[in-house]
């Protein structure tokens, strides 16, 4: 199979893949095909350069980033090593499946959040243990509607969640919230939001501490969920949640409800 055929197959199967190309320097136009497992084919003209670029490309795949990096002809990266050597510029073009948002709880807020998440390009999974609520008819905009508990869902998919993905827990039910939070904390997911008033959150924190969650782990939870934009309706709340996800990713100081006090609705 040619490099192009391998590449096209991975993209069509929605599997992460990257093309690292020399765009300047020796061996311009040469290519390395990289997956999260490592280099799969091609060469940039030097085995050590291939190794270093494959390593960096794996990192870019994890982050879902496309970038240009500079190396020495043998993969040197430190300024001392790069002194007086020709520079190889490598374009790392990553192709990642869409980020995933897992929403726990089949409620009205879920439908609105799923809609907004679709606009932002997420693969949306709705999960609730209650068969009568978790139906395709109620969530036609979701990519998947699963009737299951959080623990089996995280057992099956937890390892695939990365910094680009989000878990939103909208259930308000300790039976479901606690395993959902614990399951999410065991993954590398980039955003964990949990819905509920400050009072509900305080009670939930007690239950989570009983379940063995540490204060440090608790820092990852965005609860109450969303930005402090005065959202009331499910649709407005969905925007406030997605706004918070964007702000957390970009590191901007949009005010989050978690970081204030007083009533959420003024």
């Amino acid at each position: 199979m040619s490099l192009y055929e391998q590449f096209a197959q991975r993209v069509r199967e929605n599997l992460p893949v990257a093309l690292a190309s020399v765009i300047d320097g020796p061996h311009i136009g040469s290519l390395l095909l990289v997956t999260p497992e490592g280099a799969q084919g091609g060469t940039l003209g030097n085995a050590e350069l291939d190794r270093v670029v494959a390593r960096d490309t794996q990192g870019e795949l994890e982050a879902g980033r496309t970038s240009v990096r500079h190396y020495g002809p043998q993969g040197q990266t430190t300024p001392e090593d790069l002194h007086n050597t020709p520079t190889v510029r490598v374009f790392i073009d990553t192709f990642s499946p869409p980020p995933m948002m897992v929403i726990f709880g089949a409620v009205d807020f879920t439908a609105a959040l799923a809609r907004v998440a679709k606009v932002l390009g997420y693969h949306v999974v709705v999960c609730d243990a209650r068969e009568v609520f978790a139906t395709r008819r109620r969530f036609p905009m979701a990519d998947e509607v699963l009737v299951t508990w959080p623990t089996p869902l995280f057992t099956e998919r937890g390892a695939r969640l990365t910094q680009r993905d989000a878990v939103c827990i909208l259930t308000h039910d300790p039976k479901f919230d606690v395993p959902a939070v614990i399951g999410a904390l065991a993954t590398n997911v980039g955003y964990i939001g949990v819905m509920g008033s400050r009072k509900t959150h305080a009670k939930r924190v007690e239950r989570l501490i009983e379940a063995g969650v540490t204060a440090e782990q608790m820092q990852r939870l965005m609860s109450p969920i969303g930005l402090d934009i005065g959202a009331r309706t499910p649709e407005e709340t969905a925007i406030s949640i997605c706004g918070e996800i964007i702000a957390r990713r970009t590191g901007r100081g949009a005010p989050s409800l978690r970081d204030g006090d007083g009533p959420i609705h003024k």
Partner: peptide
């Protein structure tokens, strides 16, 4: 932009 023949 990088323009490249598709020969791979």
């Amino acid at each position: 932009l990088f323009i490249q023949p598709l020969t791979w």
